[in-house]
Design a protein around this nucleic acid. Structure first.
Lengths: 130, 130, 130, 130
DNA sequence: GTGGTCTAGACCACT
DNA sequence: GTGGTCTAGACCACA
């Protein structure tokens, strides 16, 4: 369980934690049933406020990525729910669009984006859920 | 000049305005030298506070997309600066990565992303700056 | 943290704040990592609207002088970026030229200017970034 | 009488006119008694609003640089008033200070400033009034 | 008419 | 507690 958090980033710390855990799951480094650190452990490791980790865990549970077992700890969820919410997909498409616009002003072509995506999808390996 | 703004969106209104104007420029709907609506006009059209529009315009000027001429109005910038800031590109790549992760959980494959990007790049037409 | 602001000055209040903080940094009174007053604190101290201080802080962050950490506060930036933008330097040279013209009409010789500059550079001490 | 004005500049157009005329006087290109163009002439030459030129001339007259003779035209003032107003000099010194601070952040040393000033003073030639 | 600045006060997200 | 965003007004300088 090694990851870091950038307190300077514009992305909220709790969201950085959410993202990184989801990434570790997709990469197969964290597999269903794995125990993840307690809120206090992770907080002291990342040197952040426990409330921040707590918020991240709540969000992950809400998304069905982890589940907490009273008195036992927090675990990666067994059933991987792929909830293809249309609204969320539309939002994702919109974000992609904005990214292309930003890229265009920075001289990043659509081919470069495609390259990035393929490279990263490969990094995720066969764990990609599609 | 048709665009709308969603006051309930997570994205700040001023940023929505920035994004949409940048999109209109890339699509060639707004061309260099074009006058864009005055702060007050756009504010009353979008039913938004003039200060909010003003903030958007100031950000666009900082990015070199528009230029303001005191007492005359605001215009699309003549020289299209493509500033390939490495840091910003790294940030863009990171955002793309996060998007792929999110997509993965929603059942959106890397091919779908590529498709979206190509489609949108085509929409931008020959005005894409790469 | 002692500074004042002149609401009757031609120079916008937010810019006065920017200037004074940059001066304090150069003088070494504020050193990298130092926490600066919160928006509300400084606003009530200067008897100015919080929005005005906020605008100053945002400008300082854009210039890489300070960095804000959500929920924690605002701090003097660690890495001192000296961005030698040619355009800005040309602008600076132009301003200097105008100053000499103004001075000439007020009976201020070029030697007097040089004297002022040397005296002030000394005041900045070894913290001058050249 | 050749000069130009930059409508994109942050400096108000009327002030650019004031500055340039004062510079021409200091350089000896315009000498006491010389007739300068009428408001309308200069306005059409610079392609600016006549009101703007008018404002510049009013300011120049207020500063004692030019004088208007009813029905005859506008002329460079004969007696060169060197009004060493202490307040104005203090203001000038303050502006110089701000310039040094700005320069410091752009990597412009005090020596460079001195160099610039000397070079420009030389450009003004023996017409410098000190 | 234009944009720029400022105030007074509100609400929100993050830590 | 922190900064970020937004509204509803006002006043000013510029052209």
């Amino acid at each position: 369980m090694f990851f870091q958090v950038d307190p300077r980033s514009q992305i909220p710390i709790w969201e950085q934690i959410v993202n990184q855990i989801k990434e570790l799951v997709l990469k197969g480094i964290l597999t269903p049933g794995d125990k993840i650190p307690s809120v206090r452990e992770l907080a002291s490791h990342l040197i952040v406020n426990p409330n921040t980790v707590s918020k991240a865990y709540q969000e992950l549970e809400r998304q069905g990525v982890i589940e907490t077992m009273r008195g036992r700890g927090t675990f990666i969820c067994t059933k991987l729910t792929t909830n293809a919410d249309e609204q969320k997909i539309a939002l994702l498409q919109d974000k992609t669009k904005q990214l292309v616009i930003e890229g265009s002003y920075l001289g990043v072509s659509s081919d470069t984006f495609t390259e990035w995506i393929r490279a990263f999808a490969k990094e995720l390996g066969g764990n990609e859920r599609d």
